[in-house]
Write a protein that binds this DNA or RNA. Structure first.
Lengths: 290, 290
DNA sequence: TGGTCGATTCCATTGAAAGGAATAACTCAT
DNA sequence: ATGAGTTATTCCTTTCAATGGAATCGACCA
């Protein structure tokens, strides 16, 4: 009887509606949503009405929909990523003030870099990344930093999967990537010329959290004509160290207690900021371990 | 039979779960959520599991939940408020670099100020506001600016409702508020000493969008001991003007076209950034105007 | 080892959600 | 004006996703 969505949980459908929006189509008509979400008009109509009721969608005068601010408000409660962002902000500003180029903070999410913040320069080179946007791990210096310090499991997973290409400088060969990752660990930073765009060179350093875990990558994007990268690396490393310090300062007072109790808090932090294996669903579940 | 939530739409319940989180309790156990959302454990358990599936909730090692990054990612697609934030950022940084105090950008949402961004200073006075946080309109200089330029309907609504008090300086009397609003319109800025906290003085100016509509308030929070406010006002006004200019520059190319076509785009912008009458549900619908 | 508390699973019941169809509203043609 | 085409909204019956009480599991502590 061609009931496309019969038997599909509501939340799934709601997410389909929300995910119909993207950066290229920030506002959509009912019909467009219905097409993109593969659902009947009547259904979408009710769902959007419900979402609007809760402020998760907004309606424009031309009757089209867009993502609402309420969603952003809720999102601001996410302490993990946004806490880190808040805390790192002043240091991003320091870097930005010194280098005067795109400065960005990224974390590992699924198998990509998710950029939490980006300070731009009006006269800077083009930069694909956007706040809230994602980039493959192999195609950005931030990604290389995060991957280099990620769990061996994730590294293998990425190394054995097909690596997307943006320019002919993008690293797509597993052996080369393996070499680069080793170098990143060795040198303490990643510098990539033209991975995403030939005009742009990315430089990134790891941000260490407690427990010897890398929780983020701090990076800049400069014109590929830039000669001396070492001074930039120093600025980044210094800022990253300050972020780490701020992290430690923030987390200890919260838990305080004795030495034996601190482990719980540290676990929470590291596991949440670098939550990888949480989403086991899209890894394809390589083998049954349970 | 005490079926508390029988007959309540799923989205309502999902929102109840998400809204159980706040800044003071960024992570909650199942039991806590169940209490705060007034729902049986079994129900909450399934809801949280669903939400986690979609990344809207994250689970920590200690089995407690928190808001997930996915929510923030979706929120980043909201072009209205976040577009404004992105665009205003560099100018916020200018102000922050000059004044070296809390610098914030707020918009009108429901009957409150919603802060889109805040740049802080480590040595600055305390400041209640947080990114993503709200403050009543009568209790902050940003709120006064927004209210002063809001629709007469909203102004009346606020003036005739009970006004929350934070300190004995907070304006809670309608006649006084009316006078202050007139002054804000007259002078082009609002300055409030100790509305929220006696130690802090807020100064805010309107950010004008196209169509002679105020779409945001740009403000700083300085120590109440600060003597000369006029220089600060100048800095703010200049930055606000630059934001307005950037707004115009961004929106015209999108629509371009002739003068007769621009109206559509302008309508979208103003209505979305300062969406007030959209949410007619909580205004109680004073009278049928259409 | 038994008791308390939180999390999880089970499952019979049921009303919220679905979506086809009819209707309304809004363009643009001619 | 008129009518064809497109998009949005309302109606209404069917039905399965969601509910939540109860049972079970598991962790922690005394």
């Amino acid at each position: 009887m061609a009931l496309a969505s019969r038997g599909v949980p509501v939340l799934d459908r709601l997410m389909q509606v929300l995910e119909a929006f993207d950066l290229n189509s920030p506002s959509l008509t009912l019909t467009q949503i219905s097409q993109r979400a593969h659902m009947p008009m009547a259904t979408v109509h009710r769902l959007t009405a419900d979402l609007e009721e809760h402020g998760l969608l907004e309606r424009l005068p031309d009757r089209s929909y867009r993502i609402g601010v309420r969603l952003w408000e809720l999102a601001c409660l996410a302490p993990g990523a946004l806490g880190l962002r808040e805390l790192a902000m002043p240091h991003l500003q320091d870097v930005h003030a010194t280098i005067r180029q795109h400065t960005q903070l990224g974390i590992l999410q699924d198998r990509e870099v998710l950029f939490l913040e980006r300070l731009s320069a009006p006269d800077a080179v083009i930069n694909m990344t956007l706040v809230g946007g994602r980039v493959p791990l192999n195609a950005s210096s931030s990604g290389l930093v995060l991957l280099a310090h990620a769990s061996p499991a994730l590294q293998e997973e990425v190394l054995t999967s097909s690596l997307p290409r943006f320019t002919d400088r993008t690293i797509t060969a597993a052996p080369e990537l393996r070499r680069v990752l080793a170098s990143v660990r060795q040198e303490g930073y990643a510098a990539g010329v033209g991975y995403v765009n030939l005009e742009a060179t990315g430089i990134a350093v790891p941000v260490w959290g407690p427990n010897e875990v890398v929780i983020a990558a701090l990076g800049v994007v400069v014109p590929s004509t830039t000669q001396r990268l070492q001074p930039i690396v120093s600025v980044l490393q210094s800022a990253a160290a300050n972020i780490s310090k701020a992290l430690r300062a923030t987390h200890l007072p919260a838990g305080h207690a004795g030495a034996d109790d601190g482990g719980r808090y540290r676990g929470m932090i590291s596991a949440s900021l670098g939550s990888l294996e949480l989403s086991g669903k899209d890894t394809g579940a390589p083998s049954g371990s349970g």
